[in-house]
Write a protein that binds this DNA or RNA. Structure first.
Lengths: 160, 160
DNA sequence: GTCATTGCAAAGTCTTTGCAGGTGA
DNA sequence: TCACCTGCAAAGACTTTGCAATGAC
């Protein structure tokens, strides 16, 4: 099936190191996961169910957690929603989230990361991971709608 | 009971504006909330139950949500945990979270905030709120323990 | 053949909702 | 008075766990 990837090797290595086995489900989940920037467990479940209708949601949860342990994925909480980020391919990135249409834009900014390190250093900390989310929306039209999705924004408070 | 505060006035104003009523429970929750930097619904419930054993957890959830609507509180998700932050007194702040003992340190950094605005501007966004969390731990001792709480850190991966 | 893994269903956790009785303005 | 509130219990959303059958090595 899928040609060997660096990521598959990472998974295999983690599996053998921990006496675990490479199953069809695990391989499918990894393959699908690598095509995405981020997924929720539910989304992953629905994607997989198209090809393999008998897949269980519990397996998806278990495998996504496994991918986090290998370092290929990283669990992220946006508001109330839990997403699994593909860090393997893109490296670390932060998020800009549209509060009207829930679209997520990824970005990186070295200057911010440096300032974060500085804050940590001042507090005697070593940063292991971090999370930065900006919530907002595209400049609104004079008519009061979101430029992206058209929803009415005129009665939303701005609070930073 | 509690002498009048600016925050109580904000609450009263919001209530009357929306045809809501000031109840004993709402006043108690506000009073307790103002003493804290942040609480979970469960913590708030236990604190209140000491004085008023018949308080309902649902009331706590409803009232904390109400405080968010007034702008006195702000809901924050740390990992899997939901906290309600007291923004009224301290203004916006970000968080430095110890991954070994879960202690939360609050900080502010204007330079980071400016860079955030810049990122948003480049993407045509207006920031409505943001969230920055640094996860890490105090410099570890040569023996491998967390300086803060003594837990063993030597086998934790550093991934940024 | 052995032991990890799977799918299913049941159980957990956290939060919200429906409702009947209580209460503030 | 009358609509809003409360506490309780039930329902929901999301995630984890127990278990018997299945499958990888």
């Amino acid at each position: 099936m899928a040609k060997p990837t660096k990521e598959l090797d990472i998974l295999k290595h983690h599996l053998s190191k921990n006496n675990l086995k490479l199953t069809r489900q695990r391989e499918n989940i990894l393959t699908t996961f690598l095509k995405m920037e981020h997924v929720t467990a539910e989304q992953m479940y629905r994607l997989l169910a198209k090809k393999d209708p008998h897949i269980g949601l519990a397996t998806v949860y278990r495998t996504l957690k496994l991918l986090c342990e290998t370092g290929l994925a990283q669990e992220q909480h946006f508001g109330t929603q839990t997403q699994f980020d593909n860090v393997a391919h893109k490296g670390h990135h932060d998020h800009l989230i549209c509060t009207t249409c829930d679209k997520i834009i990824e970005f990186e900014n070295c200057q911010i990361e440096e300032l974060q390190e500085e804050v940590a250093r001042k507090n005697g900390f070593t940063i292991r991971t971090h999370k930065l989310e900006l919530y907002g929306n595209p400049v609104q039209l004079s008519s009061g709608e979101c430029k992206n999705c058209g929803k009415d924004l005129s009665n939303q408070d701005v609070r930073r």
